[in-house]
Amino acid sequence: MQHRSEPIIARRPRYGQWAGGAVLAVFAAWVVYQLVTNAGFQWGIVAHYMLNREVIAGLQTTCLLTVLVMVIGIVVGLVLAVLKLPGAGVLSLAADLYIWFFRGTPVLVQLVFWYNLASLFPQISLGIPFGGPKFFSVSSTLAISSFTAALLGLGLNEGAYMAEIIRAGLLSVPPGQSEAAKALGYRRLQTLRWVVLPQAMRAILPPTGNQVIGMLKYSSLASIVALPELMESVENIYSRTFETIPLLIVASLWYLVLTTVLSAGQRVIERRYGERLA
């Protein structure tokens, strides 16, 4: 019995890949050479300031701000996403307007607005509107600190983006799941809590992890309202010492460390959650 031999396909030399690899190798060697030989990097100063008390305090503020902003963003986003589901009526329009406004205006403008809220509303009051009695009142200058302005500006803005992420996750669940839960006597909120949301988490977790990492870096915008987070702390130091490049390297290294940790945590959470739903 004769066996038909398979045709031999000759592979063409991949000159383009070889050339690209050579260019990349030369560029990598140049980068390493600059890092080692260029005195402008001042690695001794970088090492000196990595654990500086002011830098660490700014790092802690950055981490705290990121966590609180994401909590606000997820809570606001979940409410907005539910309101945008079919059957919400006029509340769906309110959610659309919220998302339209906060996604359509720069977050930097929102931060500055909240920080200067006292010029528009000198007093923040709780009571009956349109000239009615006030039960509680406080000065806006006291109520809206740098941290509060950053928290409101970043948190409310993040809520608009999280709303679309969560809504997309909820819509990824087949409608039959909700219908089956309704047939079993589940109420609307019970169906959302016990049936739809757990299944939607598979689609919600990856982009939410990306938002957390992005927010860690966006928190540097809070320096515009004089919040002593990591970037502001670094700027304060090099404004005194004029060691700009080493201090910027310090901030970059800390951001890289935090994003690496968050990325690793995101992968672990996604893998474990995927195993639970498998």
Rank of each mutant, 00 (worst) to 15 (best):
4 R>E: 03
5 S>A: 08
6 E>Y: 02
12 R>H: 11
12 R>L: 06
13 P>D: 07
19 A>G: 01
24 L>P: 08
25 A>R: 01
25 A>L: 11
28 A>P: 09
28 A>S: 12
31 V>K: 10
34 Q>S: 14
34 Q>D: 15
40 G>D: 14
41 F>K: 01
46 V>L: 12
47 A>Y: 15
47 A>T: 14
50 M>P: 01
55 V>S: 04
56 I>S: 12
58 G>D: 04
59 L>D: 10
61 T>M: 14
63 C>P: 01
63 C>G: 02
64 L>Q: 12
65 L>D: 09
69 V>A: 08
69 V>C: 09
69 V>I: 14
70 M>N: 14
72 I>S: 15
72 I>P: 03
72 I>F: 14
74 I>Y: 12
81 A>N: 00
85 L>E: 00
88 A>P: 00
89 G>Y: 00
90 V>F: 07
90 V>L: 06
90 V>D: 00
91 L>Y: 00
93 L>S: 07
95 A>C: 03
96 D>Q: 02
96 D>I: 00
98 Y>P: 04
99 I>K: 06
101 F>M: 08
104 G>Q: 15
105 T>N: 05
106 P>S: 11
109 V>R: 01
111 L>E: 00
116 N>P: 01
117 L>C: 06
119 S>V: 08
119 S>R: 11
120 L>I: 13
121 F>D: 07
121 F>M: 13
122 P>Q: 09
125 S>M: 08
129 P>C: 06
130 F>P: 07
130 F>S: 11
130 F>D: 12
131 G>N: 12
138 V>C: 10
141 T>N: 14
143 A>I: 12
144 I>F: 13
144 I>W: 11
155 G>I: 07
159 G>N: 07
162 M>L: 11
165 I>R: 03
165 I>S: 03
165 I>H: 02
168 A>L: 03
168 A>S: 04
172 S>A: 06
175 P>S: 06
178 S>H: 01
179 E>F: 09
179 E>T: 11
189 L>N: 01
190 Q>Y: 00
190 Q>S: 00
193 R>W: 02
193 R>D: 00
194 W>D: 05
196 V>R: 01
198 P>E: 05
201 M>V: 14
203 A>N: 11
204 I>W: 08
208 T>Y: 07
210 N>T: 02
211 Q>R: 09
212 V>H: 02
218 Y>R: 14
219 S>H: 05
220 S>Q: 03
222 A>H: 02
223 S>I: 08
225 V>Q: 04
226 A>P: 01
228 P>S: 11
235 E>H: 10
235 E>D: 05
236 N>L: 06
240 R>W: 03
245 I>Y: 10
247 L>G: 01
250 V>R: 11
251 A>K: 06
251 A>L: 03
252 S>G: 15
256 L>F: 10
257 V>I: 13
258 L>I: 15
261 V>S: 09
263 S>R: 07
264 A>G: 13
265 G>M: 15
266 Q>T: 10
272 R>F: 04
273 Y>H: 12
